[in-house]
Amino acid sequence: MKNMVIEIPKTMYMITIVALYVNIAVALYAILAKPNLVKKIIALTILGDTVNTFAILAGYKVWRPGLVLQPPVLTELDDVSREVIEEFVSRSVDPLPQALVLTAIVINLAVTLFLIVLALYMYRHFGTVDMDRIGRMKRGVISEEVG
C-alpha cells in the first residue's frame, strides 16, 4: 500500500527534476556560449525561473503518504476553531519557499528590466548586440590609437 502511493509520484518527480536539469543546462549554455546579448538575457530569465521552480517543488512535498495537499491559504474566516486550523496545518504545503520565490521573482524582474535597457543602450552605441563584434570593434580602435 505504501509503495503504491509513493511509486507513481516518484516517476513524475524524476521526470520533472530531469527536465529542470535540462533547462538549467540549456540556459547555462546560452549564457556562456552565445555572443548575442538578447539571447543571454533570455537564457538568464530561463535559468532564474527554473531555479524558482526547484524551490517551489521543494515546498510541494507529500510529507505523509496519501495526503491531499492544499495551497497555504485559509478559506474559513468567520468560525475559526482549533480543528479548522489543525486541518489547515496538516494539509497545507510549505509557504516559506513560495515567499522566498516571490522575492526572487521581483528582483529577477527588476534586474532583467535593467539588463534590457543596458542592451538597448549598447545597441544604440555600437549598432549591434553581438559581443564578439563589439570586441573586434574595440580591438580595431585600440590598434588604430596605438599604431
Binding site: P72, V73, L74, T75, L77, S92, P95, L96, Q98, A99, L102, T103
Partner: peptide
C-alpha cells in the same frame, strides 16, 4: 488568511 503574504 494568506500565509505567503503574511510571511512576506
Amino acid at each position: 488568511p494568506e500565509a505567503v503574504t503574511a510571511i512576506l
